[in-house]
Amino acid sequence: MLKVFLRSLFVVLCLAGLSEPALAVAVDQPLDDPRQEARARAIHKQLRCLVCQNQSIEDSNAALARDLRILVRERITAGDNDEAAIRYIVERYGDWVLLQPPVKAGTALLWIGPVLFLILAIAVMVVWYRRRSSPVAGAIEPLSSEEQDRLKNLLADRDQQ
């Protein structure tokens, strides 16, 4: 029975207290130096929350996200630059936590893809225009309904003047 219940449980955003520690050790305390705090926040936005997957740790209410926010602040205060602070997290949780996928062999297609699509689409369009352009056919086309309307308006305008 429990299984049926669990299966049909509708999960929206895992703010649910299913497996969240009750022990709140620390709250988000911003760093005193606003420049350091801004750097920490920028890093928070680049890291994916592991509990509420698909939110950044900046946007997540999960306890682990808060722990990681605090950890990033600690690394910044300890003198890490942004890259080192991010690397600290990646060494523990892997590339998966990076919201911006790193450019490497496996992601080449991902990054080239949009450019490829655009070139392909333009190529298809150009070929299509070339193939169908036939000056003779264009000349004997009857007026479209839009052109009819415009013609009528033009005539009406002239009549008024």
Binding site: R48, S56, D95, W96, L99, Q100, P101, G106, L110
Partner: peptide, 18 residues
């Protein structure tokens, strides 16, 4: 990528914005 290589990556807002 997961199906082909087993690598798990994230494609997040920075990718789509870019």
């Amino acid at each position: 990528l997961d199906a082909l290589t087993g690598d798990k990556i994230t494609v997040g807002p920075p990718y789509f914005n870019a």
